[in-house]
Design a protein around this nucleic acid. Structure first.
Lengths: 261, 261
DNA sequence: TCGAATTTGTGCGTATGTATC
DNA sequence: GGATACATACGCACAAATTCG
């Protein structure tokens, strides 16, 4: 019954969206119930539900079981500084700088020894099957899961030293650069490869995001010259994150003579 | 009928996903049809469709009407270097470095004078209504749209100089840092704020991506000290892009004395 | 070249169970 | 208990694209 080309649930979604954006439905306010919308627009449950699902997926509304559908208040995404290397650099140095309201940020971790598989071996430039230390982090800010991270370090470098387990012993919580420095490895640069992709099912629970939504994925590697000493996968909810990179401009590029003007 | 806690469509999705990841279904290959899956698993259409929808949303598969559901082959996303500032820095210096197969990268541009609105005025630290030069770029690589960009510069800085229009005159194609240097403004740093969001309707055509998909959005600002001299919005298809940032580690952090070992 | 069968996508009415308020 | 919302599942119809005889 394509009355007007555009399907019923999309027309309803358009209508409700424009009402929300125009302020007719205030942030935090309740939308009409599904039954109400059925009556008001002469539709059955299914198209009404689909319309609401569209708005939920767009992040405009949020359904609370047993209560109603509410217009979302949109917190500005957290700024997560990632440029400039920071001496206090724990894995979450940047993000933990600002406690924000609702609680001091903290994290849990879990290290275990494993062996490098294909892709990982490539990233660390070691052979497949070489032993590595794997550490998983769940980072919480304001009592909400903010960031997942899995870090790998070749045990050929750290094995037998105090730096073998990132979060144990005298070097716990020091950050990769400092910890490596203590065992004689000078980290000279860090690379971060940023991509966005749909959230995996395994991540959607810990990150507290819906299954269809997208995450920012950072593939980070610490280098000592051309030798990778650590690499990590960092995953953040895209809706809540804004990565801030700062890029220095070498002085050579800026000539002292003003040619024009 | 919650036979095993986990709903039928998720169990089926898990099964199919593991088959794909294990290589049982090859990239480019066809999945069993919906009718087949119904028969094989004793399910009705609905849960089977939902399972496939999950895999589609995860980007693992792709349905082609009239033909079937296929395992996606994932072309490696283009590496787009954005760290280190590059002397040859046109707006697309990084991306244009490597011609790649299929054609030399090139771009189109279009400049026009406008006036700063609220958010833009804040980013450029000028007053609302101040005149600015707006330049829009469409960047093509291998004859495919790769990147959209809109750049703004306060005319209070560049007005009346040869640098007023980025792509005209003797300074055309020079890049922001070089161009500003020619009129006596020394760019000292560049900041990039990276977010991911659903593609806008206006972008989906020029970028050649489907309407539901997501883009990487970069808000870039060139600074001369604490003075913004240029800011730009850069938009790329997330599936095809991988931003590479390189972060230098200052030497101070790395002590010369090896304490342990 | 034509047409029928297959296949996915979309829309929608319905029903059942469960959690929350 | 009642209202509400959510998740799951079944059935049906049609559109659009593709495949194949």
């Amino acid at each position: 019954m394509g009355e007007l080309g555009r399907p019923a649930y999309l027309r309803l979604a358009d209508l409700l969206r424009s009402r929300i954006l125009s302020g007719e439905h205030q942030p935090g306010g309740r939308m009409p119930s599904i039954a109400d919308l059925c009556r008001q627009h002469g539709l059955s449950e299914q198209p009404v539900r689909q319309a609401l699902r569209v708005l939920n997926a767009e992040g405009l509304t949020e359904g609370r079981p047993g209560s109603g559908t509410y217009v979302r208040r949109r917190p500005a995404p957290a700024r997560i500084p990632r440029g400039r290397y920071d001496a206090a650099g724990s894995p979450f140095a940047g993000a933990s700088r600002d406690p924000g309201p609702g609680g001091v940020p903290h994290w849990t971790h879990d290290s275990q020894k494993t062996w490098a598989t294909g892709a990982l071996a490539l990233r660390l430039r070691i052979a497949e099957g070489d032993p590595i230390m794997q550490t998983q982090y769940v980072f919480l800010a304001a009592d909400r899961p903010a960031q997942l991270s899995t870090s790998w370090e070749p045990l050929a470098l750290t094995g037998g030293t105090a730096a073998a387990r990132p979060e144990y012993g005298p070097l716990a919580g020091l950050g990769v650069v400092e910890r490596m420095a203590r065992i004689g490895l000078t980290v000279t640069r860090v690379t971060e490869d940023v991509t966005a992709r749909p959230v995996l099912e395994a991540e959607s629970g810990p990150l507290d995001v819906a299954l269809g939504s997208t995450v920012l994925s950072i593939e980070r590697t610490h280098w000592a010259g051309s030798l990778p000493v650590e690499t990590a996968d960092i995953v953040l909810a895209a809706e809540r994150s804004r990565l801030v990179y700062e890029i220095g401009v070498p002085a050579e590029i800026t000539p002292e003579s003003d040619v024009l003007r």
